[in-house]
């Protein structure tokens, strides 16, 4: 979680320095969701797919921070060779299927990945993330219906950070309790504190058991919060500074985890050592991403099609 936090802060800084362009959606505040869920998944067996706020999910899956940061700066060493950018990162090797820029698209795609797991009988589960904005897209419900109809092994993880860009959940959803969204499809749903990494992990284990045993999809709504704006160019004037401050001071997932570790006997020195180690990793990733060369000019025309005709 701390790695995601420090990575994202550095990414925000690199954006301010002009080293990252376009859109850049930071995951600060929501770290416990990706870490709690993905720590329970099996890399290489299960699959993960998400929207454009994707840096944290990749880090949580153990993907090298250097190649993620290098993608953000548009360099050849980036995970998409610099051709995707912040919103479009993939690692098929890890079973991480992106990184999608159109709100809600990953819900159908993730359901398709679940179909693949069922079809090939590989025992895998697809973890499909989406937000409180995407829940109102029609394809979400078309996917829900098929997933339940065909008992597909998919976990729908709704990251409810309360705001779809500038629109609060109350202003966009007739039913703001998002875990109930599967009811008319007979998909069970649970709501979990997304600021508590152990609660998230516990929910992940329940959901994995449910889906792996062939019972079909499950919905988990995680109540979480993003500290930064929707993207780097969002001033986030639709909420009060007090509200943000309250989350930072009283609900921060990292502070909470640190406290739990202390009660478990981890010393302050040990925590400081982790802090230092992570800072070094992130500084090195940033340095790598600044120094790595841009893609070769010939890369403009590669990867458009797989075959030549």
């Amino acid at each position: 979680m701390l790695l995601i936090r420090r990575f994202e802060e550095r990414a925000g800084q690199l954006y301010g320095l002009g080293l990252i362009g376009g859109f850049c959606h930071l995951y600060i505040g929501q770290e416990a969701v990706a870490v709690g869920l993905q720590s329970a998944m099996t890399v290489g067996k299960d699959s993960v797919i998400t929207g454009y706020r994707d840096h944290g999910h990749m880090l949580a899956y153990g993907i090298d921070p250097k190649v993620i940061m290098a993608e953000l700066t548009g360099r050849a060493a980036g995970i998409s060779k610099g051709k995707g950018g912040s919103m479009h990162m993939f690692s098929v090797e890890h079973g991480f299927y992106g990184g999608h820029g159109i709100v809600g698209a990953q819900v159908s795609l993730g359901t398709g990945l679940a179909l693949k797991h069922q079809y090939s009988g590989d025992g895998g589960v697809c973890l499909t993330y989406f937000g409180d904005g995407a829940v109102n897209q029609g394809q979400v419900y078309e996917s829900f219906n098929m997933a339940q109809l065909w008992d597909l092994p998919v976990i729908y993880a709704i990251e409810n950070n309360k705001y779809a860009m500038g629109t609060s959940i109350e202003r966009s959803s007739s039913e703001p309790l998002l875990y109930k969204r599967g009811e008319s499809f007979r998909i069970p749903g649970i709501q979990v504190d997304g600021m508590d990494v152990l609660a998230v992990r516990g929910a992940a284990e329940v959901a994995l058991e449910w889906t792996r045993s062939g019972k079909g999809p499950i919905i988990i709504e995680f109540l979480t919060y993003r500290y930064r704006g929707h993207s780097m160019s969002d001033p986030a004037k639709y909420r009060t500074r007090e509200e943000v401050q309250d989350y930072r001071e009283h609900h921060d997932p990292i502070d909470r985890a640190a406290k739990e570790l202390e009660t478990m006997g981890v010393t302050e020195e040990e925590l400081k050592a982790i802090d230092k180690e992570i800072k070094d990793i992130v500084v090195e990733a940033a340095k790598f991403s600044e120094e790595a060369p841009e893609p070769e000019v010939s890369e403009l025309h590669t990867d458009v099609l797989v075959e030549t005709y």
């Binding site: 548009g74 980036g78 950018g85 479009h88 893609p295 000019v297 890369e299 403009l300 458009v304």
Partner: peptide, 14 residues
């Protein structure tokens, strides 16, 4: 150019 628009600054320019 007849390709999806790349993210990298140098390729975007091309």
């Amino acid at each position: 150019v007849d390709v999806p628009l790349p993210y990298a600054a140098n390729l975007e320019k091309l």
